[in-house]
């Protein structure tokens, strides 16, 4: 059974009196534990697709289900709960909480989104810090970490609550090539270890090559796909 299934997905923004189509009837299917990239130039609609998968945005028309849930039908509160329970996020700008240490940033979803008991929480956070190679930086705040280290913390935060799906919008855009490569490798490693599905957007050709499945978007339309095992 597929993890994500979208059919005729459309998103149109209204800016003043003008309708601006961002996504125009795309179909795709993403299998569990896959490593998928949505690629394309700026404005092609890849971030919009990721936002709709992550129930941050609702489609104008079409259907999208994530983990057998029709996410388009979820209201604001239900969307937040769904995201908190099933989806991890990695952002281009890391978006760590500046006043928290790396440890506390990773711990955040377990306290503020879910309610894990303290001992279980501690074990899980330490395991994540170790998994992303940040165990020795646990007590540092984001402003004391490099870009790559911040993104490692962000990866750990996205995975700490055992999310089935991690969405990463341009996760390497603010990193140099070597660091970007290491982050992608880390994401792959975590996919292999935990069986988590990673879906990310990128316009960096080197990063695209790392994806096992690639959906290419142009002007909001699906221009091509590669590595798709079934439709």
């Amino acid at each position: 059974m597929s993890l994500i299934h979208a059919e005729g997905l459309t998103k149109t923004y209204r800016i003043g009196d003008i309708d601006v189509p961002a996504v125009r009837g795309v179909d795709f299917t993403i299998e569990p534990a896959s490593f998928v990239a949505f690629v394309g130039p700026s404005g092609s609609g890849k971030s919009t697709v990721l936002n709709m998968i992550g129930c941050l945005d609702h489609p104008t028309s079409g259907h999208i289900s994530v983990l057998d849930t029709d996410v388009a039908s979820l209201d604001r509160r239900a969307s937040a709960t769904f995201r908190g329970n099933h989806i991890g996020f990695i952002f281009q700008d890391f978006n760590l909480i500046p006043v928290f240490t790396a440890y506390e940033n990773i711990e955040y979803p377990l306290i503020m989104v879910q309610n894990w008991p303290p001992e279980k929480r501690r074990t899980q956070v330490l395991a994540m810090l170790d998994a992303v190679g940040m165990a020795d930086q646990a007590n540092k705040r984001p402003d004391q970490l490099s870009g790559g280290q911040k993104q490692r913390v962000a990866v750990a935060r996205a995975l700490v609550s055992n999310s089935k799906l991690v969405l990463a919008d341009e996760p390497t855009a603010n990193l140099d090539h070597d660091t970007a490569h290491r982050i992608i490798e880390l994401m792959k490693k975590m996919r292999d270890q935990l069986g988590t599905t990673f879906v990310f957007s990128t316009h960096d050709p080197k990063v695209m090559r790392e994806a096992e499945v690639t959906y290419t978007l142009e002007d909001g339309r699906m221009a091509a796909n590669s590595g798709v095992t079934h439709a």
Binding site: L56, F89, D93, N95, I97, Y108, P109, R157
Partner: peptide, 16 residues
């Protein structure tokens, strides 16, 4: 604002 966006995106309930 961006920080609020991030914590909201990762599922922090509005009440929290």
């Amino acid at each position: 604002i961006r920080e609020i966006g991030a914590i909201a995106a990762i599922g922090t309930p509005p009440g929290r």
